[in-house]
Nucleic acid binder design. Sequence first.
DNA 1: TTTGACTTGTCATTTTTTGACAAAAATACA
DNA 2: TGTATTTTTGTCAAAAAATGACAAGTCAAA
Lengths: 104, 104
Amino acid sequence: MKETFGEYIKRLRTENELTLTQLAAKLDLDSANLSKIENNKREFDEKRLELLANVFNLDLAKLRTEFFSDIIAKKIYDNNCDSETLILAEQKVEYLKSKNLTTI
Amino acid sequence: MKETFGEYIKRLRTENELTLTQLAAKLDLDSANLSKIENNKREFDEKRLELLANVFNLDLAKLRTEFFSDIIAKKIYDNNCDSETLILAEQKVEYLKSKNLTTI
DNA sequence: TTTGACTTGTCATTTTTTGACAAAAATACA
DNA sequence: TGTATTTTTGTCAAAAAATGACAAGTCAAA
């Protein structure tokens, strides 16, 4: 079963026997805020992905996939989007690629 | 072939022979900003979806699907996310549903 | 009951988004 | 042509959202 990005960080942290304070320091983050991230009450900031990958020796590309899939899942979930949304999104990605569009 | 949400609005507008100014007024929006939306230089604001549906007599649910798929597609595209991202996202949506999680 | 680990609440600051307007560019058309 | 209309682009103050920081709370183990 999948987990949220916050739960993923928490698992990494506990498996590596780090306290919130210890990991927060490595991520240049307040431990209280890291707690919120782990409990899905704040978002992890994209700019810390590389740092996170280094701390736990993770593949950055995979971590990015975890991260962005999480953001997308939350958007779908929070807005009660129907099952077609992701299918349509995939088509639109292809369209954007084909047009080489510069979006906002 | 799919189109962006902005292009979709532009098509609706021109097919219905409205000027930017005319449609912008109906959407309570500055025509200059509507132009930017149509040209993928600004985002359409979710709060105007219902208004848009009314103006062109569209199904709001379908319009929402168009809208959110667009946002997701742009995120994927802008961040060069790999093809697994959407698959993972779908799994995470199921996970969120199963846990009835309240996200941010 | 003290200590360390974690959680929650709050708020000023920073960052991002939005609305609004001016002006330039493109288009239509007499 | 010249002029009116439409569309696009640039800019910026104001509004909204995200972030960092810190205080104070709970909880569990020693």
